[in-house]
Simulated assay, not measured.
Amino acid sequence: MDTETVADVVTEVVLPGVVEPSGLEIRVRPAPQPAAGEVVLGLEASGVSFAEQQMRRGKYYDQPAFPFVPGYDMVGVVLRVGAGVDTALIGRRYAALTKVGGWAGQVALPVDGLVEVPGELDAADAETVVVNGITAWQMLHRIARVRTGQTVLVHGANGGVGSTLVQLATHAGIRVIGTASPRHHDAVRALGATPLDYRAADLPARVRELAPDGVDAVFDHVGGDGIVDSFRLLKRGGTLVSYGTAATKNDTGSSRLPVLKLIGRLFLWKLLPNGRRTHFYNIWAGKRRSDTFHDRLRTDLGRVFALLADGTITPQVAARIPLSRAAEALRLAESGTVTGKVILVPDPAQNTSDAR
């Protein structure tokens, strides 16, 4: 690839403070240069997840100080490499967890955190299962260790993580009950789950009708008081995996308090002599042990990519929206009207590379 064709300035989306989606700012800056051990990825796709929705409210647990560029994960082509990095990587497509920074035309990242994307996969399709796929796979297979023939309850089964989790579970021969708004029930049913209205006052009773002895695992991104029902719906030996506090997203006050209260509650339940397990899932757990963290990242996302490539699971792309219209993308993701993940893609005139 002729690196002279790579843009020397890039567009990025900046979150300047606690703002409505319309308050996002589009800025242009010089293209990043990779340090030793880094590459520069040219953006092909970046997702709009619940993390960014919380960040714009100043409510994400460990977000950086404003202003910053959001973007929890991305897929892109290697444009430049730093010292010590094989130049053969240039022109190849990789996925990466970024936590922040992904909503930009080019991003400098450590090479050891990259996961190669199979060549036959579309970038936006692959992006739907980066953070969502890692989260779903690890919660299902590493944390809850659900087995074929068991039954699980997935809250938000139409969402990015939920829709991926449903597909991974059904592929493994696991029965899935999925909560969602009634307008999403057909989509949830098509993924292989039995849908229930998450707003139904008798939701626990309806779950019990389908699983009289309780479920083997509950995957709950909601938190709040509803976490009590999630725990009570477990059968003996079952596992509650909590991975968010969506119920408190509009609460004022500390961004950390709802998470800490939730973790405290889960810890106390873990001490009860009832055979039930609880776990608060954090995708970044083990990051200090970088070798183990990155090995698991590559292994787990590689498995999900393989299932996506062979058609076992279907990418749930809610919309593809140009980077310069990030405000529109964020509003759509927050609307609750879509199934799957809203994806940001480069603007038509923004050529980050000629590699693909």
Rank of each mutant, 00 (worst) to 15 (best):
G226M: 04
G133M: 02
T170N: 09
M139G: 08
R189S: 15
V152N: 07
I177Q: 07
A217S: 06
L153V: 11
A201H: 06
Y198R: 13
Q167I: 13
P195F: 11
Q138N: 14
V176G: 08
V131R: 01
L196V: 13
G133K: 03
A144W: 06
A190R: 14
D216Y: 00
G226I: 01
G149C: 12
R208A: 14
A126D: 09
L165I: 10
T170I: 15
Y198L: 06
R189G: 08
D213G: 15
L140M: 11
V130Y: 01
A169M: 12
P195G: 12
A144H: 06
R189H: 15
G160S: 10
H185P: 03
T151M: 06
L140V: 06
T179D: 06
R145L: 04
D225L: 03
A157F: 11
L191I: 13
D202S: 00
H185K: 07
A172I: 08
G192W: 12
I143A: 03
T179G: 04
R175V: 15
G149E: 08
G162F: 06
V166T: 15
T164M: 09
V166Q: 09
A193W: 12
T194G: 03
G192M: 13
R183Y: 04
I174Y: 09
D186N: 02
A217R: 00
V154I: 14
W137D: 14
A126C: 08
D202W: 00
I174P: 05
T128W: 05
V161F: 11
T128L: 03
N132E: 06
L165Q: 09
V228T: 10
N158Y: 00
V176Y: 10
A193Y: 12
L191F: 15
A157P: 10
G178M: 09
M139L: 09
G156D: 05
T148E: 15
Q150N: 11
D197H: 05
R206P: 00
V154Q: 07
A193Q: 13
A193T: 12
A187R: 12
H155D: 00
A201V: 05
G178A: 10
